[in-house]
Write a protein that binds this DNA or RNA. Structure first.
Length: 116
DNA sequence: CCCGTGACCGACT
DNA sequence: CAGTCGGCCACGG
């Protein structure tokens, strides 16, 4: 199945066969973040019941094989900043801004309204 | 099995 | 407020 045909949660699960349980959990949880909202590495880690694995979550998202179907750009650091290489980070920042998420000084303004 | 590699985090200068 | 530091952890070699 081609990446462009992945639409539903079931599609994601099927496309991810072969990936580890942990990685599937990360991508599935991220897939559920609605447009206009964001989550954090920490929150995603808690969502998949692995509260101390934020770093591993970040590693998994770094390898995201389903971008932008799995919206990894909606996962930010706990201070609202974007991790990773500068250029890639600002690309994700522009992406979330385009989806209506407010930012300030290059960081997402983390409010209850937009936090998933 | 040990080790290096990170898109992390909270606490603490 | 900007750095540093130590703790954490899945993954691949």
């Amino acid at each position: 199945m081609r990446k462009s045909d992945v639409k539903t949660e079931q599609d994601v699960k099927e496309y991810l066969k072969g990936w580890s349980e942990f990685e599937r959990g990360v991508y599935l949880a991220t897939f559920k973040i609605p447009k206009g909202k964001v989550s954090t590495y920490s929150r995603v880690a808690r969502a998949i019941d692995r509260p101390k694995a934020q770093r591993a979550v970040a590693n998994a998202l770094h390898k995201n094989p389903l971008y932008p179907v799995v919206p990894c750009h909606r996962v930010v650091k706990s201070d609202g900043g974007f991790g990773g290489e500068k250029t890639a980070a600002s690309a994700r920042r522009r992406h979330v801004e385009r989806e209506g998420v407010p930012t300030k000084d290059g960081k997402v303004v983390l409010t209850e309204r937009i936090l998933f």
